[in-house]
């Protein structure tokens, strides 16, 4: 049987150019995310991980290669996807509720109905009582949960997450990982997750793709066979450590 692929990138290459300078960023990168699968992309900083997500969302047109969502070619055409960029990108002039309701309003939902749906979701994200707060009044973790909630309210079963927890302190980060897993299990979405933390990638994913230094190439693809729901105890198991060793080795290979 052919597996149902939610997202497929086929031999995608990309160049960053500013003026005269041309910098190859991605070199024939292929990867796929199955329906309901959680896939992480891991690589050194500047290996074009964010570019992969932009191309996957259709926001960026690659020089070569194709992108398929649900088997249809969407290369270079912005799609309705749960894209979560590196910074939380909550708009400072909007309250938590107004920020989270944006995807609903963009989908032409009535304002009243949109806010009602946001209010309903607040407890799921541990944000009840904060609907009318401005982002600057929220903690880093709360802002990230708001951004995650906004991503979940985008009516698409594909999530593209770009190092969403990179700016958080270690403790908040670990909490947020569990949050994300619970949300992901609850909403049954396909996820492509970019990170440079090996632990994070193993802990969250069904599969981890390792990308080399710039220009990014496929180095290794590793299926993570750890039981779900994932628990923090896993972090110290032998299996976890052997995955970790494997990924460290793959990352240290020079291209």
């Amino acid at each position: 049987m052919i597996p149902i692929e939610k997202l497929q990138l086929k031999e995608v290459s990309s160049t960053y150019s500013s003026g005269e300078e041309k910098l190859p960023v991605l070199d024939r990168v292929s990867l796929s995310v199955g329906a309901g699968e959680f896939v992480s992309v891991i690589g050194p900083s500047g290996s074009g991980k964010s570019t992969i997500l932009k191309i996957a969302a259709g926001l960026l047109n690659p020089d070569r290669g194709k992108v398929f969502i649900d088997s249809s070619d969407i290369t270079g055409n912005p799609q309705l996807v749960g894209y979560m960029p590196q910074q939380d990108l909550l708009f400072p002039w909007k309250t938590l509720k107004q920020n989270a309701a944006l995807p609903l309003l963009a989908a032409k939902t009535k304002k009243k109905e949109a806010y009602a749906r946001v209010e309903e979701m607040l407890p799921v994200f541990g944000l009840e009582g904060f609907a009318d707060y401005y982002p600057y009044q929220l903690s880093g973790g709360m802002r990230q949960r708001t951004a995650l909630m906004r991503t979940m309210l985008i009516d698409s079963d594909l999530m593209l997450l770009d190092e969403p927890f990179g700016a958080l302190d270690a403790l908040t980060r670990e909490n947020m990982q569990d949050w994300l897993l619970r949300i992901w299990e609850r909403f049954k979405r396909s996820a492509l997750f970019v990170t440079h933390s090996i632990d994070e990638a193993i802990y969250l994913s069904d599969r981890v793709c390792v990308i080399s230094e710039r220009p990014g190439k496929n180095v290794l693809e590793q299926v993570i066979e750890l039981p779900r729901p994932r628990k923090k105890e896993l972090l110290t198991t032998e299996k976890f450590t052997s995955y970790k060793q494997m990924l460290i080795d793959a990352l240290s290979v020079k291209s």
Partner: peptide, 10 residues
């Protein structure tokens, strides 16, 4: 990036 984000919301 903010414009990109809004575009992914259509």
């Amino acid at each position: 990036e903010a414009i990109d984000l809004m575009q992914t919301m259509k």
